[in-house]
Design a protein around this nucleic acid. Structure first.
Length: 297
DNA sequence: CGCCAGGGCACCG
DNA sequence: CGGTGCCATGGC
């Protein structure tokens, strides 16, 4: 992988095991806009980025060499050896072969803590397009303007201080429904420091889960998503309705299985790389609708 | 129209 | 504690 400064942006050539579309569309991030095939606009860390991929080359526009090195390189997890991760997982479990072959280019993004927390609180009992819509609405109303790409305007996600000053009714107006009080509670607890990213960084993963679950509307699944996507703990294995169906199909003979049992199995099966296995399985299984309707047969 | 969505909570026994 | 209905909203 080599980085060049060109007139149209920062070019990263020779990228391996990375697919921009898969990485953004796999359901880990809800704050981006597809501008064209393999071409996206997004905001993170208060900055607007225009990014595209052609083959093994990534082009980062609307940014500087410095921002690429300090922000986007880490955000897209470009320095991690995904070939090694796949090798590790496949050596333990050949049932992952189909998913990993199909979804060969997923990276797990290193996303911002507060936005990830709120996004996954919103995610409960909602489909991905709706989650994106609510995240976008909250950003537009309460985030700061980040710029424009074509006729598309972008707003950064608001920080905890800003969102903690927004009342529940206003959050409800963003179509958040019954999640509005949860979002307010999360903003309060992060703003006051009762839940802080810095403190979480010093805790064990189990302690992180307990701390995050003090927030209303955060249970095991949401906590695990925050731990995986924002705290860079790749052993976390969030179990949602899709993962449950997929795991039941692949590992439990199609039988209804408790979430705790699935968690325990995943921990044993995938160990420190559970989060990667989860993403390969989630995105692939969802794409082929694995396990849908099996219970009706 | 009824069902379900990257769940969690309150309420029940 | 383990199970069950409800929670807003929107797409199919």
């Amino acid at each position: 992988m080599e980085v060049f400064e060109k007139q149209d942006g920062i070019a990263v050539e020779g990228v391996q095991d990375f697919d921009l579309a898969q990485t953004l569309e796999c359901g880990q991030c809800f704050h981006f806009v597809k501008l064209d095939e393999e071409e996206y606009g997004l905001t993170a860390y208060g900055r607007l980025l225009h990014v595209s991929q052609k083959g093994d080359t990534l082009i980062f526009r609307n940014t500087s060499r410095k921002d690429f090195e300090t922000i986007w390189r880490h955000y897209f997890d470009l320095d991690r050896d995904y070939a090694e991760i796949k090798k590790f997982l496949l050596a333990r479990d050949d049932k992952l072969l189909e998913a990993i072959s199909a979804i060969h280019g997923i990276h797990i993004l290193n996303q911002e803590f507060f936005e990830t927390l709120i996004s996954f609180i919103i995610s409960q009992n909602k489909q991905i397009p709706h989650i994106k819509q609510i995240v976008s609405e909250i950003s537009k109303r309460y985030g700061s303007y980040a710029g424009r790409l074509g006729n598309q305007e972008f707003y950064a996600f608001p920080d905890a201080e800003k969102l903690s000053r927004v009342d529940e009714e206003s959050i409800r107006m963003c179509k958040a429904g019954f999640r509005a009080p949860y979002i307010c509670d999360a903003a309060q607890k992060v703003h006051t420091g009762q839940v802080s990213e810095e403190a979480l960084a010093q805790k064990t993963t189990e302690e992180c889960r307990e701390t995050l679950k003090q927030i209303r509307g955060v249970g095991d699944k949401v906590a695990n998503c925050v731990i995986l996507f924002a705290l860079s703990r790749r052993e976390a294995f969030p179990v949602d309705v899709w993962i449950r169906r997929i795991m039941e199909t692949l590992y439990f003979g199609g039988e209804t299985t408790g979430i705790a049992q699935i968690q325990e199995f995943a921990e044993k099966q995938f160990g420190p790389y559970g989060g990667y296995a989860q993403q390969y399985l989630f995105y692939y299984g969802k794409t082929v609708k694995m396990g849908v309707n099996i219970k009706k047969l």
